[in-house]
Design a protein around this nucleic acid. Structure first.
Length: 502
RNA sequence: GCUCCCAUCGUCUAGCGGUCUAGGACGUCGCCCUCUCACGGCGAAAACAGGGGUUCGAGUCCCCUUGGGAGCGCCA
């Protein structure tokens, strides 16, 4: 361990040191990270980013990322939550090495570690009742002291131990000095030991606490790097004490900043603390979300859009910033738009089919597409559609003209386009288009332009009414592409629906 | 209350003592392109929280203030 760093410098050194070696020499023990969500809800967007960073870090160093489900809170852990988390990770494209470890199943091992500490005197039984603890807290609060356990059973002789109840087991934490966390992201963080009390390792019912379980599991799983949210920073100090009591090496730790809502406040359900599945439902592409999340708090110079491969190549925890970032959906949308446009049609089509069951109105759209055999039409319209959509939801919305059946209901704005003059023009256009030998965008364009010229109107004066007739809206992909996607018969029929009777 | 962390345009950020009259991206506002909407192109407005130091020189280092955040459970 380096003795004393300045604040800023060590982060980079730590990152560098961790970065290169592995490919070459022995210094390079394989990096093992882990993502350890507690299954009390869906995969939160912040958790997803934590998973991403762990994943990028491990992959960038040729290491492994493990998955551990922290299900020791039996009351709040649920099967659906576990499923949602695994599903969320898979959707985001984050895979893990080996099988997921379930923490609760390891309770016996956790107890065994406590026995060791009991035997070495690094832990002791505490018989304080919940009421006593509550009193301790309230009097401490009243006297303006931090609410902490006062250590009343720390040095009590065995003879004093009551026999009518089971004790909790507490760590005999050092009273003096300080505990140092050499954090990969936060730098050197020093916590005075007097502010850390004797935490509970084993509850009086014999079940292990989170603090204990995390240490034992990380150790047993061979975790070399713990990357998690800063909300665990104080825990890092407490856990360090447990590692020391157990005589184990402390893994490297990196505490990444939290994500805040758009208003700068803590992320909550009201503003953006959504599960990743919500982003799937909003029509975001996993690759875009990955890119966005990676860019939130981490940077590689001015690079904004990069592939996952590049992120893996570039990622370094040392480059993760220390301040919290706000979640900006407008930027995510823009980024997603980039990905939509950049995704080859066939691939986008696959992505859409996969997402359809999750999109609002998706199942119905799917049914209609299947029933009416409209998939080819959809594919034909896709290039024009994806250009205009920031999300798959918008893509689907843009394709509504394909799904809708005659007679079309017109939006008010479209209705306004269809003036008597316009309808008369449409009637003429109908005749011309009907006479077209081949139904192509170029052929249609020629006819439309020619008619506009003959009528002495600008192209828009004809194209817009045509759009209204064809799509029921005033905006759509290029109108000649729409004509092609709809096909001759349907197009002509829709035009006739709106044309002035001859 | 106590402990710890953070602080560059509205937002995400570049910046690791001189190249900063502070760069990029999103968003916003103009203009161009144009059959609409997008895309794209060009351009504009927009930031080093405040105050003290250190230094020949500070956005960059130190301290204080202010403002945010996190943690302080027999929850995880």
């Amino acid at each position: 361990m380096s003795p004393c760093y300045t604040h800023a410098a060590p982060r980079r050194d730590a990152g560098r040191a961790a970065r290169n070696p592995m490919r070459s020499d022995a210094l390079a023990e394989t990096v093992v990270t882990r993502f350890a969500p507690s299954p009390t809800g869906f995969l939160h967007i912040g958790g997803a980013r934590t998973a991403l960073f762990n994943w990028l870090f491990a992959r960038s160093l040729g290491g492994k990322m493990l998955l551990r489900i922290e299900d020791t809170d039996r009351a709040r852990s649920t099967e659906p939550a576990i499923a949602a988390i695994l599903d969320g990770l898979k959707w985001l494209g984050l895979d893990w090495d080996g099988d997921a470890v379930f923490q609760f199943a390891r309770a016996a091992r956790h107890r065994q570690a406590v026995d060791e500490m009991l035997a070495s005197g690094r832990a002791y039984p505490c018989y304080a009742t919940p009421q006593e603890l509550e009193e301790m807290r309230s009097t401490a609060q009243a006297e303006g002291r931090p609410p902490r356990y006062d250590g009343r059973w720390r040095d009590r002789p065995e003879a004093d131990r009551p026999t009518d109840r089971q004790p909790a087991i507490r760590l005999r934490a050092p009273n003096e000095g300080e505990t140092v966390v050499d954090d990969l992201v936060q730098g050197r963080v020093v916590i005075p030991n007097k502010d850390l009390d004797d935490l509970v390792l084993l509850r009086s019912d014999g079940t292990p606490t989170y603090m204990l379980a995390v240490v034992v599991d990380d150790h047993d799983m061979g975790v070399t790097h713990v990357i998690r949210g800063v909300d665990h920073l104080t825990n890092a100090a407490r856990q360090t004490q447990i590692y020391e009591a157990l005589g184990w090496a402390v893994p490297k730790m990196g505490h990444i900043p939290l994500i805040h809502g758009p208003d700068g406040a803590k992320l909550s359900k009201r503003h953006g603390a959504l599960g990743v599945e919500a982003y799937r439902e909003m029509g975001y592409l996993p690759a875009a979300l990955r890119n966005y999340l990676a860019r939130l708090g981490w940077s590689h110079g001015d690079d904004e859009i990069f592939s996952t491969e590049q992120a893996i190549e570039w990622f370094d925890v040392a480059d993760v910033g220390r301040s919290a970032a706000r979640f900006d959906e407008a930027k995510l949308q823009n980024l997603n738009g980039h990905y939509m446009r950049a995704t080859p049609d066939a691939e986008l089509m696959t992505a859409l089919r996969a997402a359809l069951p999750h999109l609002p109105g998706g199942p119905q759209a799917q049914a209609r597409l299947d029933a009416a055999g409209l998939w080819p039409a959809f594919e034909s319209a896709l290039p024009g559609l994806k250009e205009r959509a920031k999300t798959l939801v918008e893509l689907l919305d843009g394709a509504r003209f394909l799904l809708d059946e005659r007679p079309l209901s017109l939006e008010p704005a479209a209705e306004q386009l269809l003036t008597p003059d316009a309808r008369a023009l449409l009637a003429k256009l109908h005749g011309r288009l009907a006479a077209l030998p081949d139904w192509t965008a170029d052929g249609a364009e020629q006819e439309v332009r020619a008619l506009a010229e003959e009528a002495g109107v600008k192209l828009g004066a004809l194209a817009q009414p045509l759009r209204a007739a064809l799509t029921g809206r005033k905006t759509s992909p290029g109108i000649f592409d729409v004509l092609v996607a709809l096909g001759r018969e349907e197009s002509l029929a829709r035009i006739e629906d709106q044309a002035a009777a001859a």
